[in-house]
Amino acid sequence: MTLSGYVVAVLTGLDHWERDDRGRHGFPGAILAGYVTDLVQPVKHLTASRPADRKLADLLLGTRLVSHSGGTIAYVTTAKTTAG
């Protein structure tokens, strides 16, 4: 997830989504891989248990990325990796 182009949180496990009767989507397998608490001097908190998810979060958190917003949350697609 980005805020003004800066990655402030990384969610993994978004391969599967469900839609409710209001048209809202949910991601039952989503995992918070990490987040930052400061953008001036990013403080990273890596929370995922899988090494590959932690590595991805560490790489992206606090960086500036072009993202696509469909509302309050912006998304950035990454290529699947086999690193672990």
Score class of each variant (00 low, 15 high):
Leu3Phe: 13
Leu3Asn: 11
Ser4Tyr: 12
Gly5Asp: 10
Gly5Trp: 04
Tyr6Asp: 06
Tyr6Gln: 11
Val7Tyr: 00
Val7Asp: 01
Val7His: 01
Val8Ala: 05
Val10Ala: 08
Val10Ile: 07
Leu11Ala: 04
Thr12Ile: 06
Gly13Met: 10
Leu14Tyr: 04
Leu14Trp: 03
His16Arg: 12
Glu18Ala: 08
Arg19His: 03
Arg19Glu: 15
Arg19Asp: 05
Asp20Tyr: 00
Asp21Gln: 11
Asp21Arg: 12
Arg22Gln: 11
Arg24Glu: 14
His25Gln: 11
Gly26Asn: 07
Phe27His: 14
Phe27Asp: 02
Phe27Cys: 06
Pro28Gly: 03
Ala30Phe: 04
Ile31Arg: 12
Ile31Thr: 12
Ala33Asn: 05
Ala33Ser: 15
Gly34Val: 11
Gly34Glu: 07
Gly34Asn: 09
Val36Glu: 10
Val36Arg: 09
Thr37Cys: 02
Asp38Met: 02
Asp38Gln: 08
Leu39Cys: 01
Val40Ser: 09
Gln41Ile: 08
Val43His: 14
Leu46Tyr: 05
Thr47Asp: 06
Thr47Pro: 05
Ala48Thr: 06
Ser49Cys: 05
Ser49Lys: 14
Arg50Cys: 04
Pro51Gly: 06
Pro51Asp: 11
Pro51Leu: 09
Pro51Ile: 10
Arg54Asp: 09
Arg54Glu: 12
Lys55Phe: 06
Lys55Met: 14
Ala57Gly: 01
Leu60Ala: 03
Leu60Asp: 01
Gly62Val: 03
Arg64Val: 11
Arg64Thr: 08
Arg64Pro: 02
Leu65Arg: 15
Leu65Gln: 13
Val66Ala: 06
Val66Gly: 04
